[in-house]
Computed example of a mutant assay.
Amino acid sequence: MIHARITGTGSYLPGEPVSNEDLVRRGIDTSDEWVTSRTGISSRHLATAETGSSDLACKAAERAIEAAGCEAEDIDLIIVATSTPDYIFPSTAALLQSRLGIRNGGAAFDVQAVCSGFVYALSIAEKFIRSGSHKRALVVGAEVFSRILDWSDRSTCVLFGDGAGAVVLEASEQPGVRATALHADGSHHPILCVPGGVASGQVIGDPFLRMDGQAVFKFAVKVLGDVAHEVLELADCPVDSIDWLIPHQANIRIIQATAKRLGVPMEKVITTVERHGNTSAASIPLALDLAVRDGRIRPGHRIVLEGVGGGFTWGAALVDF
């Protein structure tokens, strides 16, 4: 049987950290105490105006490929999860393929599931590999959410940051991605969305992120707990077999409530929200790479990756590292 295993991880954050106090100095009507007490966020990274998602993705991808011990040309599938692509088209994945110098004709496409995007992309790549059609996939989450923030809205602009994370997923005889589950319910779209677009060169509607924070909190805690249990049941694994839980890094309160509902102690939860903010589709692979590189996640560990995002979308993956 063909399995899909993560063989390399990488991440990239643009520029220097921007603290809550830095935002206050920039004129944002907030305070460090207000942001930290409500979200757990102390800082985030913000890309320059010239930096796109493909730039961040390329840095993270290069590090993941190096960690996997392969060459870029060995990659025959690229999936980029992003809600902030460089262009309407071509896809950020196609731009990344070009930036990496890959000319082998492998597939490349984007996935748009907002903060669940990386889990969606990982699940898709795993199925391509298990089918036998592809051997080595590059799965990336990359975002420049700072481009879609209303900097006069302190309830949203302090929450988000920019960054990218990547993994190389390879065909293997050993189990790796053991189970995945993906869901969506479009009826909840008004509570987290960017209700605008472009037509005839003009912005139509509202081009900024809008969110009902309380509604998102309640929805996120419920579905994250449910979907984690779902993938554990699919793989016939008990909760206490989990070495690490890596949830989407949106808000420390959501993370704590999710862990409690699942019955996982916070000592087993990887958190980066305090230093990265919410980087949407990049948050899970960023946290994964950080924990791999600092030695917490080691070969043989069992991990639950889970995300929830606008749409509404949600999903989880149970992975043996």
Rank of each mutant, 00 (worst) to 15 (best):
I65G: 00
A121K: 08
L182I: 04
V80E: 04
V167G: 02
V198K: 13
G311I: 06
V18D: 05
L169W: 02
A94S: 11
K218Q: 13
F208L: 08
V177Q: 10
D243H: 12
E306S: 10
V24I: 13
A113V: 01
D236R: 15
S187E: 14
C237R: 15
V114N: 03
A287T: 04
F219L: 15
R293Q: 10
S146Y: 04
Q112R: 15
D29E: 15
V24T: 13
V24R: 15
M1F: 07
A93E: 06
G27Q: 14
C115H: 05
D206S: 11
T9C: 08
V114F: 01
A250I: 04
G165N: 06
E173Y: 09
D236M: 12
G165F: 03
D320T: 11
A4L: 07
G161A: 12
G141M: 01
P190R: 15
T313N: 10
L245A: 02
L77Y: 03
V273I: 14
W34R: 14
G117E: 06
M266T: 06
G295H: 07
T279M: 11
I41R: 13
I102W: 06
L95N: 00
T36Y: 14
G196L: 11
G197E: 09
I2A: 09
S83A: 14
S241G: 03
V177C: 07
A137T: 03
V35P: 00
S19T: 15
P14R: 14
P90D: 09
L318N: 05
W151C: 05
G165S: 05
E62M: 11
W151R: 14
S131D: 07
G310K: 09
E173F: 07
L286D: 01
M266V: 01
L182N: 03
A199L: 05
V177E: 07
T92I: 06
E73G: 04
G197A: 14
W34G: 00
G52R: 14
D22Y: 13
R38S: 09
R210N: 09
L286F: 01
A166S: 08
V198D: 03
L305P: 00
F217S: 04
A4F: 05
R130M: 08
A282C: 01
V194F: 05
E173C: 05
V223W: 06
M1H: 11
T82H: 08
T313D: 07
R302D: 00
M211H: 13
T258F: 04
Y87A: 03
V18K: 14
C237L: 12
L169N: 02
Q202L: 06
L100K: 08
N104L: 06
S152Y: 11
H188D: 12
L23W: 07
L305S: 00
T7V: 13
I204R: 15
D320H: 11
E16F: 07
